Measured scan of single mutants.
Amino acid sequence: HNLTITQGKLFFHYNPKLCLSEIHKMEEVSGTKGRQERNDIALKTNGDQASCENELLKFSYIRTSFDKILLRWEPYWPPDFRDLLGFMLFYKEAPYQNVTEFDGQDACGSNSWTVVDIDPPLRSNDPKSQNHPGWLMRGLKPWTQYAIFVKTLVTFSDERRTYGAKSDIIYVQTDATNPSVPLDPISVSNSSSQIILKWKPPSDPNGNITHYLVFWERQAEDSELFELDYCLKGLKLPSRTWSPPFESEDSQKHNQSEYEDSAGECCSCPKTDSQILKELEESSFRKTFEDYLHNVVFVPRKTSSGTGAEDPRPSRKRRSLGDVGNVTVAVPTVAAFPNTSSTSVPTSPEEHRPFEKVVNKESLVISGLRHFTGYRIELQACNQDTPEERCSVAAYVSARTMPEAKADDIVGPVTHEIFENNVVHLMWQEPKEPNGLIVLYEVSYRRYGDEELHLCVSRKHFALERGCRLRGLSPGNYSVRIRATSLAGNGSWTEPTYFYVTDYLDVPSNIA
């Protein structure tokens, strides 16, 4: 807008934040220059609390790290170098490059900038070799853009010569660093050979998330399962459950009422301010606690030095998902009996873990797994792929695949051998790939016309006998059925096997 004052003059007093240069501009645009008398524009009460600059400061050096910015700028000295009290560095987070010096300023003089007072450097006698002032900004957020400017702080001049310097606002972004852990990993099994893994992005990506790394490792069953005799009275049979499938998407929606109208769909109840505040506090606490764990609990591995020492970490090797089922080394339970199943799973520490690289999504279907087997899954978020990966501390989750139908069934015939004193040795093959492992066998036998009897055969007993022995049988026709019990439950009964026990007292003698 054009402003013209045809008559009258300007009068400025007691404006401590208004620089004289701005008042002189007002004289020019209003056409009143030359009308004012000496005392109409006070030299001592206008701009006496402001830094009124008329020179431009330029930054000469900028260096960044993930949490620091090192700045240096060209030296500046007023005509009387004693008038320079120091520099004021202003900075704040700036997602967009549209910041002005006066953003967030209120009537009390406060604003949204963080201000650092910096002492002037030592003055050199040689004007050509003056030290460049600077400042190291610490405690910054990774991968965050900051708006920065600097200006001088000078003393009051009796001659009211307006001098000083100020830089333009520059924008500097800190470097990326390792992201925080992925949030809320959930693993479920939808079949006997697959596990579905879902997660949420890290709360602090500290860069642009480029991919996720998912490692999985087959877990050995508890050692007590191999040692305890679950045929003993009072000892509860062990059981394991597989990871249940995901709930429906509708039930997972946030901010939804727990109660549904019987007449149909209901609208979600909005969260109160107290609920939102509580969630923010919980989120802040979780982030602080995660940072504490990362800094205190997890110790970084030592990389190899120039002395030739090897990095103890196993090298990563990509495998196809079809090879995942046989990740671990199978060892027989008892070496003397080769027909026992290889369900003991000690994992070799030198073995390469299978892994998958996930790009542009937060889910993965891990296939080719062994049925009813526990897996430990390790999830890392990465925001750099080359020249070397920059990934987060791992988040861990466990899951067990679903049982395989008929995996616990005894394959092959049940054979028998009759000894003296009416002892019958029953023999059968253990299931080759049971659900988890076989903890015991149930032997059901009966003599024709009598009630059915049951015998429990422990895992250890089966390994020693290759089956079991029935003792003290009365003469007669017998039928026997056997079924295995694994961590997933009972298998199917075998087809009945028949044998006849004679009275050993009636056996004919070869003595003449």
Rank of each mutant, 00 (worst) to 15 (best):
S203E: 12
D204A: 14
D204V: 13
D204W: 15
N208W: 12
N208M: 07
T210Q: 05
H211T: 05
A220M: 06
D222Q: 03
S223P: 15
E224M: 15
E224H: 14
E224L: 05
E224G: 10
L228G: 14
D229G: 12
L232S: 09
K233M: 13
K236V: 11
L237P: 07
P238I: 06
S239D: 10
S239T: 14
T241W: 03
W242E: 09
S243A: 12
P244F: 08
P244N: 14
F246C: 09
E249H: 07
S251F: 11
N255V: 07
Q256E: 03
E258T: 14
Y259I: 03
Y259W: 08
A263W: 02
A263M: 11
E265Q: 13
E265K: 09
C266D: 13
C266S: 11
S268A: 15
K271S: 06
K271A: 14
T272E: 12
D273R: 14
Q275Y: 08
L277S: 02
K278S: 14
K278A: 14
K278H: 02
E279A: 06
S284K: 13
F285M: 15
K287V: 14
K287H: 12
T288D: 12
T288Q: 11
F289G: 04
F289T: 07
Y292D: 08
V299T: 07
P300S: 07
K302F: 09
S305W: 08
T307I: 02
T307C: 07
G308T: 09
D311S: 15
P312T: 11
S315G: 13
R316G: 04
R318I: 10
S320H: 12
L321E: 10
G322S: 08
G322W: 13
D323H: 13
V324P: 11
N326G: 01
N326R: 09
V327D: 11
V327P: 10
V329Q: 07
P332A: 07
P332K: 05
V334R: 12
A335T: 12
A336K: 12
P338E: 07
N339G: 07
S341I: 06
S342T: 15
S342D: 06
T343L: 07
T343A: 15
S344K: 07
E351D: 11
K357N: 11
K357L: 09
V358Q: 14
N360V: 11
N360I: 12
S363Q: 14
L364S: 13
V365Q: 13
I366H: 01
G368K: 05
L369C: 14
F372M: 08
G374Q: 13
G374V: 06
R376Q: 04
R376S: 06
E378M: 05
Q380V: 06
D385P: 05
T386Y: 02
T386R: 14
P387Q: 11
E388V: 10
E388D: 15
E389R: 14
R390G: 14
S392L: 02
A395I: 06
A395T: 06
A395V: 09
Y396M: 09
V397D: 03
S398D: 08
S398T: 13
A399E: 10
A399G: 12
R400S: 09
R400E: 09
M402D: 08
P403E: 06
P403F: 07
K406R: 06
K406E: 14
D409Q: 07
G412W: 04
P413T: 10
P413H: 15
T415G: 05
I418P: 07
I418F: 10
I418G: 05
F419C: 14
N421H: 07
N422E: 14
V423R: 13
V424Q: 02
V424R: 04
E430T: 08
P431F: 02
P434N: 03
N435L: 00
G436N: 03
L437V: 07
L437K: 09
I438K: 01
V443D: 01
S444Q: 11
G449H: 01
G449Q: 12
L453C: 04
H454G: 15
L455K: 04
H461S: 10
F462Q: 08
A463K: 07
A463E: 07
E465C: 07
G467A: 04
C468F: 06
L473K: 01
S474N: 10
S474T: 09
N477I: 05
N477S: 05
Y478H: 08
Y478E: 00
Y478D: 00
S479V: 07
R481I: 05
R481G: 02
R481M: 09
I482Y: 01
R483S: 03
T485N: 10
L487F: 10
A488V: 11
S492L: 13
E495W: 13
P496M: 02
P496K: 13
T497M: 12
Y500V: 12
Y500Q: 05
T502N: 12
T502H: 04
Y504M: 04
Y504K: 13
Y504C: 04
L505C: 07
D506E: 05
P508I: 04
A512T: 02
